[in-house]
Design a protein around this nucleic acid. Structure first.
Lengths: 206, 206
DNA sequence: TCACAGCTACTACTTTAGTGGTAGTTTTAC
DNA sequence: GTAAAACTACCACTAAAGTAGTAGCTGTGA
């Protein structure tokens, strides 16, 4: 099934797909709401979903698919190589993210793989994905303000350890752990260990 | 600079690199400790670092570089396409992750790009990176055991909100929030809101 | 209609967490 | 060799978090 608000693009892709023996376009939709209805009716194996649409956007439409228990594979098919778009789509659970400027053969290959359950991603997105895993350089300066002991304790906090457990692991008194926690929270300007823990994991410190 | 515990491989790569006018191997090392010393001496623009070495492994060596304020770019050059290895390296801040079975031209191209500050990643790793962003399907069942209200509150917890703040946001009593927190912690079998918050973000629920 | 799940709210209590202050010891830096 | 920073530890206190039990209200499904 093709979902895109540009009829011409749908036609182009449809023609390309119909050239393949094992592929067939069984439905089309021009927006998210329509897509949900048609998907429920026609139960496609695979849905090619545009990211930028009026009304429900691609990610929102994808989430609606899941809620409606539509089991079709979903490939995001878009021009956007923006990091935020790619990550959002992946977090929402897409089965593929393909750029519209892909070569036709590549597109067909990706479609076939996706139907078989493989996660397909356009090659130019590799760097974008890798970047998202790297620690942000500026954030390291925040760690620099902490002493070794404080960093160590922050690491334990970000693993969910209580003060008592940290004290045991470091073989120091719980009261000492509290001192360190107090000092490090003040340094990084946060009010609770939870904020600190979430900050650590979200910014991939350590 | 080349760092690898196989002399033959170093020779091969060195020969390849020396063919290029703008590239030159100015140092070699066969293990992490040696690498740190030689890097401090010769200040290379780029370090090609093997991941699997005796003594300090690649990631540990990379961390030592950072601690020693060695500003060289570092490319992890390895046979491993294991998700854990790739992610660890990226989290430690490598500037590239290249598989040893890359084509020579590709290798040279990646080296040049890395020197210019670009993050270079071997194409076959795209899927591995993308997978790491997708929610794990099995984990959704844990959410299913929670009521709507409990899910809602878990979401706030994973944003670092206190019971008091959650109560305000939902316009219910703090005592009620506590009840929900108690119940949801029991359901997901955790002992504190921190564990729950970390679980949520690590598994990309919501 | 009746049982049950879900949401609400309270009391009373224990356990952690966080704040502020004091203070001794050890390392590090100049 | 001395001062500063780091690490240790305690006390006393307040504030959150978490536990246990009771209970009323609402909507849903049998």
């Amino acid at each position: 099934m093709l979902v895109d608000d540009h009829p011409l693009l749908r036609k182009g892709v449809a023609q390309l797909i119909e050239l393949e023996d094992n592929l067939q376009v069984i439905a089309e939709a021009s927006n998210g709401e329509e897509a949900i209805q048609k998907a429920l009716q026609s139960q496609p194996d695979l849905i090619m979903l545009d990211l930028n649409m009026k009304g429900l956007n691609g990610v929102e439409t994808l989430k609606s698919f899941k809620q409606a228990d539509i089991g079709s594979k979903v490939i995001m098919f878009t021009v956007s190589d923006a990091e935020a778009d790619v990550l959002q789509a992946l977090r929402a659970g897409v089965d593929g993210y393909i750029l519209k400027d892909s070569e036709p053969e590549e597109l067909i290959e990706h479609i076939n793989k996706a139907v078989q359950g493989e996660l397909v991603i356009s090659a130019p997105l590799t760097q974008i994905l890798a970047k998202a895993f790297r620690p942000k350089v500026e954030k390291e300066s925040i760690l620099d303000t902490l002493t070794n002991r404080e960093q160590q304790i922050l690491r334990y906090i970000s693993q969910g350890d209580s003060n008592k457990i940290i004290a045991r692991k470091l073989d120091i008194a719980e009261s000492t752990v509290k001192v360190h926690v107090k000092n490090l929270l003040k340094k990084i300007n946060m009010r609770s260990r939870i904020e600190a823990a979430l900050f650590v994991v979200e910014n991939k410190l350590f």
